[in-house]
Amino acid sequence: MNKWTIAITGKGGTGKTALTTLITKILRQRKEKLLVVDADPAMGLTNVLGIKISRTLEDLRLEIIKVGGRGIEEEKRDLILSLDYKIMELLIEKPGFTTLVMGQPRTSGCFCPANTLLRDALKPLTQVFDIILIDCEAGLEQINRKVVKTINLLLIVSDPTMRGIQTASAIKEMAQKFTHASRIGLILNKITNPSIVEIMRSKTDLEIVGTIPFDPQIAEFDLQGRSLLQLPEDSVSLEAVSDILSYLNIIQ
């Protein structure tokens, strides 16, 4: 049974993917089983994690839709029998964590029964994990439709600007429509001046659960094309993320 289903969201460029990677880096060293879901259509997370994608959930969804389109009984039966194999093929298992990539939606119709099929098929698998960590685009509806129904922690990432936290509030409202997150927290990223945090706190109704300082090392890793999983243990952002996880009781 999952103890945590955590979705990381926020507007583009705020550092959702970097944060997801840093959380992965911390959690992979622990005994809990971790599933990391890349739900961003741009699929940036796998890149930062240093993982090569072969097949995405969307590829499988298309396959289901094609079988549905042909409507041949034999083929449908084969699909039913093979679905578990095909789901397992999507998993990228690395030491300490497993990755699932959603991929970019490529159909014009909604084909919601295909989503139901996938969600049902993913259920026994997702239950194996203690923690599911999801890197989302601002909208959460994709993840909700295809992977998990309930999220117990929604973390919205923002830069320390007025525009940033206004967007964060908008995301919160949107998210509440699609999921039933029991807790929503705001993380302020790329802080250069700590005094700004207090100003931001007075300007938002979101609970600020943590802050992460601006870390030039992250930009440097990005330039060199290195995986953030290789970030040194004493990195300032890694320490900040570790503090956030402790504050949220995800780690002790």
Partner: peptide, 9 residues
Amino acid sequence: VCDEIRDIV
């Protein structure tokens, strides 16, 4: 198509 997939479900 969706009817077919519903049938699969």
